[in-house]
Every structure is written in C-alpha cells, then in structure tokens.
Amino acid sequence: MTAAPLLELRDVRCDFSVERGFLRARRTLRAVDGVSLALRPGETLGIVGESGCGKSTVANLMLGLIRPSAGAVLLSGTPIDRMDRRAVAQRVQPVFQDPYASLNPRKTVRAIVGLPLSVHGAAADPGDAARRVSAMLDMVGLPRHLADSYPGELSGGQRQRVAIARALVLRPNIVVCDEPTSALDVSVQAQILNLLLDLRRELGLAMVFISHNLAVVEHVAQRVAVMYLGRVVEEATAAALFRAARHPYTQALLLSVLTPEPGRGIPDARLGAGFPDPLAPPPGCSFHPRCPLAEARCAATAPALAGRGEGEGTVACHVAGALNSAMP
C-alpha cells in the first residue's frame, strides 16, 4: 500500500485570459487541462515536456501561487486555497530556473536566506536565526565568507545554492524545482544535482523536479509525468518510462535526446508539424497533428488516461492503448 499523498492535484484546470491586441476579443488559454498528480512522502516526481506544455503552471499551482480554475490542489488532504499562505510556504518551497532573477540584488546572502525565518517568526531570537542561516549555508556548500556578499558577486552555481538554502531554511517537506539547472553550465549542473540528491536524502524531502532535460529527470526522479499542451499524456516510474515509453510523444522526446555517442547521427522523431497554438488546441488528441501513428479517431475524441499495460502507470493514447490490450 502506498502512503497518502503529501501533495495532490485533483483534476486541476487552469485558464488564463489572454489579450490578443487592440479591438480583438480576449481569449482563454487553457494552460492546464484536467491534470491529476500525486506526490508521496520522500518521493521525487519528475515533470517533463516542451515549452508551453503547462509544466511551470503546475509548479505555480503546487506552490499556491496561482489558483486553479477548477479542481483542487491538496496539501496532505487540505485544499491549498483554504490554507494560510504562510502555512503553505512552510511546507512547500520553490527553487526556480534563473538564480539571477530570483534573488534580490540589494540584499546580502545572509539576509536572503534569513528572510523566510523573520517573515514566519520561525527563529527564537536573532542568535538562533544567525545560527540557522549559517548551518543552512554549510549544508548547501557555500563558504561562510560569502554570507555578506551580494548576489551580483556570485557565480550562477553559487546563486542557485543560495536559492536552495532559502528554500530549505524553514525545513519544508516539499521542494518544487522548476528547471533548477537549466541556466547553469554542465559542470555546475552536476554540482547542483548532487547537492539536491544529498539534501533529499539527509532531510527526507519530497521533490517535484520540472525539466525539459530528460537525462537529468531520469537521473533524479523516481516517477515521471509527461505533459503535452496542458495534459498529462503518460505517467510511470522513471525506470518503466525510460525503458519502454508508450505514448508516441514520450517516444519522440526520448528519441530526440542527443546522448554523447559519436557516429549515431541526428535521430528523426518523425514529428511532422510544429507545436500547436495553445489558444486553438487541435480537436481530439492534441498531439494528433504531429503524431506518426495518428488515426481518424485521434482527431475526433481525446483519449483518456488508461493503464500502461506493464506495471503501474497510465497513458493517454488510442493507439498505444490498443497496442497494450493486444499484448498477451
């Protein structure tokens, strides 16, 4: 039996009203369309997909930064919009992609990491706060002499360490990382990934890890959800998903990863058209205009998530679903 989810999205929809220009009607952009996800204690859930698939909107929903248009976001069973913002922040904290934009350039590292403690009144006295900030800086591997530096004096990797220290200083049990290493060089990316893996183990953190880099997600996540145009099209354990992707989109994503193996050329994922306009999503399965396996029914009805046919996990595809049920 699996543990109750720490964080759950239940059939969540999120619409944005988009201005399209002078004298043109506003339109609704459905960024997230009926997504259900669950994060269990100590687990790392990877979310992958291309730009515009809604993965960052999911992150913001999980952090309580935006409200769902329909459905519910639950923290240990309690709807997040009925909770105090501080109570949410105490349990769920973010690490964002751009450590240049997410740190106040006019504050020292010490002040940035200490701010959550004072906002939440979490430290017993100034001495306690200072001790906790120093302990946190040690934990993320920032030398103490940098505590009085400003973000502008730090490298990208050091800034991301500051962002992680700030996220963890309140000891949340969930960290939502939205592309945490995408702005970093690969050698620094490895340092930050190692740090996140260490902290996850030491603090027993549950993590949501959002990235477009599949190799990185495969490395850190135990379970992976693949999103396309606001929907989860496939979800499975990382091992099962990367061994045998079922959804044609997941397959195309995996095929497009360029591993450092010379002589293998550039793969052809046979994705015809480009990414669809999210303001006018295609009818039926939103992937069908690009799908090499598309059939007539794919343009007519959207497939529901169904069992993947091998172990746990789900996939939303008419064709892959039929392939699974045809298997012995």
Partner: peptide, 18 residues
C-alpha cells in the same frame, strides 16, 4: 558530469568538476 543512461546510475552522485 552529464547524466547518461546506461553509464550513470540514477540517484547516484555525478562526477562534478569542483
């Protein structure tokens, strides 16, 4: 230092350049 399927075991430390 790049995670590569089949060469790096998921969840294990990557060989970062310090």
């Amino acid at each position: 230092c790049i995670p590569a399927p089949g060469r790096t075991l998921p969840g294990t430390p990557l060989a970062a350049i310090a």
